[in-house]
């Protein structure tokens, strides 16, 4: 992997840093290649990768794409766990490629597959259409009759104190990466299930005291393939890279329907 060359001659300081850096590590990447329009089966292609200890899986994939196989399809943007584009199965666990360091995996082989429970577009890029549609269906925005923006020039603000923010800020951390949907056992067989991502976002707005859409949303989630298909297995929370803890949000949301809170 292209590493930054450190000029040892010039600077004592830099030299000592350079001495700390371990020699290049080698690792085998097994990457799924699959084009649903052409191929009948997924296949794995092996790539030898040299990496430094700071490299992420995304670094390695981009290196492969740039130097070895330009046809490798993957999606990414921010490289810093903010955009939610680079979710994939890394050694069988749904993870963000940009948020997973190669040497943290502690294995000699890195198996890369497209995120499960999503249709494959090509190679590692999956289709989010259903997840986004479900997300929209649950009205992920503040619902109320008045607005901060008005025709007159009067300034209005829906102020909140820090305690109110604390109630939903965790759930607002969601970057819509879909890892939770990929880990969810219901999602694995139930093609109509709303999924942890959307359900948690429903709670994000229900728990926001500026919002008045609770009953509307509770009605939408209270159906055959809605919230009741969650069994609190918690796998979503285990893989969420942003600390959203979808399992917590979903149980809080369900507690309204069970009459534990109002």
């Amino acid at each position: 992997m292209a590493a930054i060359k450190i000029h040892e001659e010039n600077d004592q300081n830099v030299k000592s840093i350079a001495a700390d850096i371990k020699p290049k590590n080698k690792i085998l990447f097994k990457i799924t290649k699959f084009n649903p329009h052409v191929d009948t089966h997924m296949k794995y292609v092996d790539y030898d990768v040299e990496y430094e200890h700071w490299n992420t899986v995304l670094d390695a994939l981009l290196m492969i794409k740039h130097k070895v196989d330009p046809s490798l399809a993957l999606r990414y943007s921010c490289r810093q766990a903010s955009c939610g584009s680079c979710g994939m199965m890394i050694n069988d666990k749904p993870s963000l490629a940009c948020f997973t360091k190669i040497n943290e995996l502690g294995s000699d082989v890195v198996k890369i597959e497209p995120m499960s429970n999503f249709p494959i577009l090509r190679d590692l890029a999956v289709d989010f259409t259903q997840m986004f549609n479900t997300h929209k269906k649950l009205k992920p925005y503040i619902i109320r009759s008045d607005s901060e923006i008005s025709q007159s020039n009067e300034i209005k603000e829906f102020s909140q104190d820090p305690d109110s923010v604390e109630k939903y800020i965790q759930f607002a951390n969601c970057i819509k990466c879909g890892l939770c949907n990929s880990a969810c056992p219901t999602m694995a067989t139930d093609s109509s299930f709303m999924g942890p991502q959307a359900l948690t976002q429903a709670y994000r707005y229900v728990s926001d005291d500026r919002d008045k859409g609770k009953n509307t949303r509770l009605k939408i989630i209270d159906e055959r393939h809605g919230i009741w298909r969650c069994h609190f297995a918690g796998s979503c929370s285990k893989v969420c890279p942003k600390g959203v803890d979808p399992a917590m949000g979903i149980q809080f949301l369900r507690s309204y329907l069970l009459g534990f809170r109002d």
């Binding site: 649903p36 429970n117 494959i120 999602m187 694995a188 067989t189």
Partner: peptide
């Protein structure tokens, strides 16, 4: 394959 749901294996 295209759909890529894990299916019953996940259970």
């Amino acid at each position: 394959q295209h759909n890529n749901r894990i299916g019953i294996k996940a259970w």
